[in-house]
Design a protein around this nucleic acid. Structure first.
Length: 584
RNA sequence: GCGUCUUUAACUCAGCUGGAUAGAGUAACUGCCUUCUAAGCAGUAAGCCACAGGUUCGAAUCCUGUAAGACGCGCCA
């Protein structure tokens, strides 16, 4: 139970005891910290229900609450608020409970099996900044779900079975018709050319551009796609080579970003389920032919705008992304029987996923109770408000971006000269990744945002670097305390100053952020909360002495507090996929 | 054309199940390093919450309309 849920519980009982039953009660952190720590606005609703003046209700309820010894102050005020302030003793006790809680105050939602579809890189082209959001938001949502007690697995759902591969094959065939893989007689075990990541980087854009103007080439690409999907052996062999090369490239980039996947399935892995899918759609009478393609109607009466039918087989006979997405649902249901499937995909695909979900429901591919959620994310724009481009107008490769930010961090580390030679590179990578991830995740998932490289590099203010810096300061104190042989009781909390109280309340309030982050599937709430904790810590840090504090009780209380603070900050960072550094 | 989303300080954004003085970061300006890391802290200044109506005791928040912008609307993913 979170802090405010606990207080809400107490308040709800007080409302009932004061004679106001069946009133929706809520206690929240105060909007007026100068007046109180917590507030309830529920008297307005109760007043309406019981036809009394709000402030009279507030007085009645406050009188009951006032008898509870955890409150320093419980008062009804002006129009009808109840203002609550806890005693320091109660806050310190709750902090002790928090410290002893194995989940550190993170609410637990058990019995959830969540499959998260994120990353979604296209194997035909290298990772660029456009792939960043899906990867880091998806990774974070997975980690948040796990922190909340869920079982969550990530599946990157590689784009490896569509036209993009056909384009690459067609382009390679035009350039190297002599390759054995292009012979219709090619059989497994034949000679396969060795490709490189650099080649793929160049081939796909060329082919893609060509297909827009060259109709004959476009037809070739479509044919290649169809043949690949029908397992023409030479194409399969070449496709495997493309997969090998780009898979290694993907993995190394995701590794650098601390993004991982339990499953590296792709659209191609859904291929085996397509016949079954088609069978279900046909038997249920859902699919029919339209303009040569096979489609399923998914429009609903309540639609404000027309929702077109889903195409499950193109007129040339090949499958399309809706086909593989639907077949993948069958696969996931079979492998995991998930209670939820989350799709962390660009906002622009909302219509497509709506169609897919409706079709899946009509076909009964998953039980009614299974949640299918489209968790769209916004576009990363440049300072001009248009989709982010490099100075010369190209797309920035992810590896280049990571490199730039890491180099800047390394330069700063060297300037500071605190970190040992051996750790510098690794710390620079962690700081760079923290800068990128926090800078992205602090923005609400679903909204477009302005990506400002300079802002990330400067790393001042509300940034991942600030968070890591705060942790290194705590590390420094605890390291020195250990060096001096200072021991303390980690579970003994006590309040002596305002800033200690403020920090404890921030730590205690974290449960609320986790709850919101999980409910809205939005990591930004975790970012905001960890930043707030760091600000409170910094405030406390600047006005308190810790290891050279002479009063033993104060010293112990402060060492315990910063130890807990570090644990909680780290838990937040863990859920964001950000690693800390010992010093910087 | 239809639909969805956005519009809050100079810039980038929180806040939106209606409630007490609308909050951060950046940039600007002031202070603070012989004391646990100044990648920091403290402070000042900065807002007709796009516009117009409506509902309400009370609206940045809910409803309607207008404007500007982004995105989507069958064989790419």
């Amino acid at each position: 139970m979170t802090m405010t849920e606990r207080l809400t519980d107490i308040a709800a009982k007080a409302f009932a005891e004061a004679g106001y039953t069946d009133v929706p009660v809520a206690v929240t952190f105060s909007d007026r910290p100068d007046l109180c720590q917590f507030q309830s606005n529920s008297c307005f609703a109760a007043a309406k229900q019981y036809k009394k003046a709000p402030f009279m209700v507030a007085d009645d309820v406050a009188a009951v609450l006032g008898r509870n010894e955890i409150f320093e102050k419980a008062e009804g005020v002006k129009p009808g608020f109840i203002n609550l302030t806890l005693t320091d003793k109660a806050i310190a006790e709750m902090t002790g409970e928090l410290s002893a809680d194995e989940h550190l105050g993170v609410p637990q939602y058990d019995n959830e099996m969540i499959v998260i579809d994120y990353g979604g890189p296209n194997v035909a082209k290298p990772l660029h900044v456009g792939h960043l959001r899906s990867a880091i938001i998806g990774q974070s949502l997975k980690l948040i779900a796990r922190a909340c007690g869920c079982t969550a697995v990530g599946d990157t759902h590689l784009g490896d079975w569509g036209l993009q591969i056909g384009l690459v094959i067609a382009e390679l065939e035009e350039r190297h018709p002599e390759w054995a893989v292009f012979s219709p007689d090619f059989r497994e075990g034949g000679e396969v050319p060795e490709l490189t990541a650099e080649m793929l980087t160049e081939v796909y854009p060329t082919a893609s551009a060509k297909s827009k103007t060259d109709e004959a080439f476009r037809d070739k690409a479509h044919t290649a796609t169809f043949d690949l999907q029908n397992r023409r052996e030479g194409y399969i062999a070449l496709w495997k080579e493309i997969m090998r090369v780009s898979g290694a490239d993907l993995k190394s980039n995701y590794d650098k970003l601390n993004v991982d996947f339990e499953y590296w399935y792709g659209e191609s892995d859904a291929d085996a389920y397509i016949p079954e899918l088609m069978d279900i759609l046909e038997k249920k009478g859902l699919s029919y032919e339209s303009d040569g393609a096979l489609v399923v109607d998914v429009a609903e009466e309540t639609d404000k705008a027309p929702v077109p039918p889903v195409i499950v087989r193109k007129s040339d006979g090949s499958s399309i992304y809706a086909t593989t997405d639907l077949a993948t649902i069958i696969q996931r249901e079979r492998d995991f029987a998930p209670s939820k499937i989350w799709y962390v995909i660009d906002n622009r695909q909302e219509m497509h996923l709506t169609q897919v979900f409706r079709c899946a429901r009509k076909a009964g591919l998953v039980p009614e109770s299974t949640e299918l959620s489209f968790l769209g994310f916004g576009t990363m724009n440049g300072k001009d408000g248009k989709p982010y481009k490099t100075r010369d107008g190209g797309v920035m490769r992810l590896s280049d971006m990571i490199g730039t930010v890491t180099d800047a961090a390394l330069a700063r580390i060297e300037e500071q000269g605190k970190v040992s030679e051996a750790d510098r590179e690794e710390y620079a990578r962690r700081i760079g990744v923290a800068a990128i991830k926090f800078g992205d995740l602090i923005n609400h998932r679903a909204k477009d945002y302005i990506f400002d490289m300079d802002k990330f590099l400067s790393a001042e203010g509300k940034t991942g670097v600030y968070i890591l810096y705060t942790v290194s300061r705590i590390n420094s104190i605890l390291r020195k305390a250990a060096e001096q042989g200072i021991t303390f009781d980690e579970d003994k909390f006590e309040i002596f100053t305002d800033s200690e109280r403020e920090l404890m309340l921030k730590l205690l309030g974290s449960g609320e952020s986790w709850k919101t982050a999980f409910a809205e599937r939005a990591p930004s709430f975790i970012c905001e909360n960890v930043y707030q904790i760091c600000v409170s810590f910094s405030h406390f840090y600047h006005e308190s002495r810790i290891i050279d504090e002479e009063d033993a009780a104060k010293k112990n209380a402060r060492l315990a507090l910063i130890t807990l603070t570090r644990r909680i900050i780290t838990a937040h960072l863990d859920a964001l996929g950000i690693e800390t550094v010992e010093m910087m």
